[in-house]
Design a protein around this nucleic acid. Structure first.
Lengths: 228, 228
DNA sequence: GAGATGAAAATTGTCAACAATAATGGATAA
DNA sequence: TTATCCATTATTGTTGACAATTTTCATCTC
């Protein structure tokens, strides 16, 4: 479980950051909500010092915006932010898929097989897109990122990109019925990785991310016009 | 100059982080050097609060490692770290080149022309690799990153990747005579971007980074064996 | 002499109060 | 009524002191 326990500093700050992130990504703290230091301090029964550290952490993760001398708020993601997010995601995950393929071990195929079987079960149980929301999709991408063997890519995806993606989804209720298609694409990517075919794995992953973006973009159009 | 003034929090912390980063990347604070909070606090005539914030900032940038309850030190970069750095760099800068090409404006060619002429002059003046060390190389890559129009890519390169690259170079005195070759590769990349040829721009950039890695890797072999 | 033990010293983590800055609201004038 | 100015209030930035943890090193034991 505990793969990367970075613990940037101090135990309290890390705990606060975890709880706050959970609240934000669960939608309990909506976009734009003010994060006053004193309120958070008394909520967590702690001083303002750790609270500030936690807010800085979440700011680095990109789910909180801090205006100096003014305060911290839950970040508001616009359409341009979403596009930028999917662009860098395509680059990093395609690279991760290529690296994973080039470093594929004999047991790789089996590992993917178990994971994807489990995901197929989840989709059968909840046909209406729980796959994309419930973490199954995230699981697959995390496995690929770990297999890539590059701590920098893994760290960026886990600590910045995925949290921002979640923030985007919690706002726009992105639960298209793309679960089955996504699973099929995952299977082809897994095959390419297990075969050690880096070029195809990278291409398929890039296409997979682009499809995901296309689906999300359609939903973004339906929602309100953007602020900035 | 001041393109992204993120100012994570507080003015003091940002100033301290800037000065410390300068010291580290100039080699005045060598890899592994201890960064005691009290010493830094009295050096900058400030309390320990902002010092801690600055250290957290530099830790996020990847040039300082913090061990909870123990302290902060200048990060020591091993061979594996260098490899990971160049892998993610290839992915991000190739993507940046592609995006820059797809968004190329009419004045793009002229802008590159000026920059590269200036760099050619620098190389003529200092034939022994000042190009790669003195910032000319960095300039080119920053221009491409900005032209990509993706704030996430630009931010990662400017705030994490390039500082770590500098840290790597200050340790291993990486000043190969690759200046002239690098400039030529820059010119071809610039042409592809100005032509709007995303695919070629991406390919050339990826190759350029790989060449840079090959040169650095040779130097790393000459140096000592790695710690971790 | 090598290793374990434990107290002392140094360093980081946390707290509560003070200073500086920004947000708020009411009074005044056009 | 609306806009502007200024005092009030609330919030963030910083500080110095205290608590907790780690590191150091002298001592003891084998």
């Amino acid at each position: 479980m505990s793969t990367i326990m970075d613990k940037s500093r101090g135990l309290a700050a890390e705990r606060l950051a975890d709880e706050l992130r959970e609240d934000i990504l669960a939608g309990r703290l909506p976009s734009g909500a003010r994060l006053g230091e004193v309120a958070l301090a008394e909520r967590f029964a702690v001083s303002r010092g750790p609270v500030r550290a936690a807010l800085n952490l979440l700011s680095e993760a990109g789910i909180v915006t801090i205006v100096p001398n003014s305060g911290a708020r839950v970040r508001e993601m616009g359409r341009a932010d979403a596009r930028a997010l999917y662009e860098i995601r395509a680059a990093l995950e395609a690279e991760a898929a290529m690296l994973a393929a080039s470093r594929a071990a004999p047991e790789t195929a089996a590992r993917f097989g178990d994971l994807l079987d489990q995901h197929a079960g989840e989709i059968a149980a909840h046909p209406e897109g729980a796959y994309l929301q419930g973490g199954g999709d995230r699981d697959f991408h995390m496995v690929v990122a770990r297999m890539a063997g590059n701590p920098l890519i893994l760290r960026y995806l886990a600590r910045e990109l995925y949290p921002q993606l979640s923030l985007l989804r919690v706002k726009h209720r992105n639960v298209v019925g793309r679960g089955a298609e996504a699973l099929n694409e995952h299977k082809r990517i897994a095959t390419a990785i297990a075969d050690g075919d880096a070029e195809v794995a990278g291409l398929l992953m890039r296409r997979h991310i682009r499809n995901s973006w296309t689906a999300l973009e359609a939903q973004l159009s339906e929602t309100a016009g953007e602020t900035e």
